[in-house]
Design a protein around this nucleic acid. Structure first.
Lengths: 255, 255
DNA sequence: TTCCTGTAATGGTACTACCATAGTCGCCGC
DNA sequence: GCGGCGACTATGGTAGTACCATTACAGGAA
């Protein structure tokens, strides 16, 4: 009983935070490795000298932080999870939903990230990955040429291409930020796929971008990425332009 | 009793998630505005038809998401909070701590963000902000010229300058990502301030950067930003060159 | 062997009681 | 009349118990 970590007794008034932090520290400190099972709630209750409610709330925090995963039944319990970008992405997503971010600000942010990723992808991506990206973009064109458009599949394909691109940067931070953006910002992006005109331009632009990445033409690839966001700006302006005209920006894309 | 929002009765087995999601939806839907007080735990317990423990765990989730703030005592309760970047930043910070990110990847990520912010700051920042940034950088130089160096204050000043710069982009997303980076990655950055040689170079570089931003010289400013990260890379290499332990290649991302 | 059932461990929920805290309000003394 | 102090009360925080639901596992039956 007393041979194990022996957590400190929690002090009243902030017992939940106390317990939560101690367990988190133990996980971070390597006392529990991914896949390990924490003691059962009833045992932690004894080790910390608290009620079971405190333990449950503390575990709820850790679960919310995506540090542990809880299973029911015999041999169940709280298991330490592998670190994942999903939770951090969800947090940004929540933030984006709460604050009403100006679409233009989101576009600026995303465009800068996208261009950096593109540069890195050209430099770091393997030939295989580049070919794969190009093939997928060609499949994308076939997808929107079908009779009955599957909008869900189209959105998923767009996300897939972006994720593919982000992974080619070989930098998990960009993969994370791309996921976060897709979670919190996707609705704007899909505007491009709603109308036939923009849909064709966008998909063709994906192909152009992928091709230049494959060919190692950084500047051309960046140019196409810029064109993507020019399209997006114009598309969104058109949709909003029905009611508001005065603040339409002068990005002017002539095709 | 039935005149109010009347949450749906929670279904057993996942009552906590049920309650949490319903309350979150109510907040998102504008049923509760920032500053509003949610019903007391004992009242929610009745409205949802659950035990109080379920309500407490659900509120714990919302608190963890930074959606509500809980006060004790009479007239206490759960109050809806204003959306803030702090929580999302903390999530990224946690992610960075869990995954041992390669230092070079962090530098690449941060450098790209920093350069984008710099460009936006030149374009969007007001003259007043630019002057303020420049003055603060000059004060920074005075700070490191003193007899007894206050390392905490130096670190704080560096953070302050970065935050100032991020705000000049007029884009909350960059402010957020800068906060997140500073939370999860700051101790690493401070390597530049540990040794006198790099400290002087870095601070002088801050002044150069701020001056060029003030003068609207985008390319020069970007050049100085690039120099900052050249310094950081060299500094890190030197430090690892001495006491590299081949397994301690992980930067010290601890808190 | 295979399948089924009982059993035990564990999380999920309900309920109660009590403590700690912090506003509120009214009583008391001046 | 005024000010301060103390009781009151609503509310979150914690402890403890009991019971239900789920799941893995062992041991027996076919």
């Amino acid at each position: 009983m007393s041979d194990k970590p022996v957590f400190k007794q929690a002090q009243p008034g902030r017992a939940v935070e106390d317990v939560s932090l101690q367990i988190e520290a133990a996980i971070m400190g390597g006392m529990f490795l991914p896949g390990d099972k924490l003691p059962s709630e009833r045992e932690l209750q004894v080790q910390f000298g608290t009620g079971r409610g405190v333990i449950r709330e503390a575990l709820r925090i850790l679960k919310q932080k995506d540090l542990v995963e809880v299973k029911k039944g015999s041999r169940g319990g709280a298991f330490v999870k592998e670190a994942d970008v999903a939770n951090a992405s969800a947090s940004l997503s929540l933030f984006l939903k709460q604050k009403k971010i100006d679409p233009e600000q989101l576009i600026v942010f995303r465009e800068s990230i996208d261009k950096t990723i593109t540069m890195l992808a050209v430099a770091q991506g393997s030939a295989e990955e580049k070919n794969r990206l190009y093939e997928k973009s060609l499949e994308f064109k076939a997808l929107i040429s079908e009779e009955n458009l599957n909008m869900d599949l189209i959105g998923e394909t767009d996300r897939m291409l972006n994720t593919l691109l982000a992974k080619m940067s070989k930098n998990p931070l960009f993969v994370w930020i791309m996921q976060a953006i897709q979670l919190g910002f996707s609705s704007y992006d899909y505007a491009l796929y709603e109308e036939d005109h923009y849909r064709r331009l966008t998909v063709n632009n994906w192909i152009d971008t992928a091709r230049e990445i494959k060919n190692g033409e950084i500047m051309k690839a960046l140019s196409y990425v810029g064109y993507h966001y020019s399209l997006l700006r114009k598309c969104i302006n058109e949709k909003n332009g029905e009611s508001i005209d005065k603040e339409t920006r002068c990005l002017t894309i002539e095709e």
